[in-house]
Amino acid sequence: MSTRRSALLWATSIAVYAFLYIPLAVVVLYSFNDSRLNAEWVGFTLDWYRTLFHDEEMLQAGANSLMIAFVASAVSTLLGTMAGIAMHRFKLRVLPVLVVTPVAMPEILLGVSLLIFFVQVLNLTLGLFSVLIAHITFCVGFVAIVVRARLAGMDESIFEAARDLGATPWQTFRLVTFPLILPGVIAGALMAFTLSIDDFVITFFTAGVGVHTLPLQIYSMIKIAVTPEVNAVSTLLMTLTLGLIILASRLAPDALRSES
């Protein structure tokens, strides 16, 4: 590569990185800014975080989000792990399509079809439960993909050896398969948790009027006006998801890489 061309590559790449990071940096910076307007730097303050922790609606939304994320990630990890193992072990036709399609479709389609289904067919009042079901539905696929990727990278002869040594299928699973796929399962669970706590579109259609999650709360706030309280909650959320991603990459670096 000539130096001129490589300089050009570097210049455009740095510009792209700047494009990715400057807006987020501005959000974080203004969350400490002592001014109602996100316009210029006035002085350092923690007031917006204080406002945030006294905002009852926001706290309730945060509690809802956490509860939904915990339950949805637990259930979808169980179902997704089963699906991942089944897709790897058996030649299945239907399950892979059922599990992977929701991952690839625009989210609005799943949201809208679940809305019709809940209201029109199940006669369900929209609320925490409908959001929970919706979140599980789109998270299962992600967990299944991560678990299957983990299994695909493994040496089949380990399982044969276990069988030859007289292990029952259950023993093989408990003593050999499960410990081996565990990092993939944990990575899948963390991914499901992050997806659930971050989801806006599907929640928007399945939550009804009564329940608010954090993204819904943020949406209704920024739809009306831009306030530094949103900067504060954004900064906290970023820190949380960043922590989860670091945790996931520590626990299962390979599982995450094969997913991307």
Binding site: P23, L24, S234
Partner: peptide
């Protein structure tokens, strides 16, 4: 460094542009 901005909620990224 390319994936990291994903760590923030999609609405937060949109909000960041609203400010900018």
């Amino acid at each position: 460094l390319v994936i990291l901005p994903f760590a923030s909620n999609f609405l937060i990224r949109v909000y960041a542009l609203m400010i900018l």
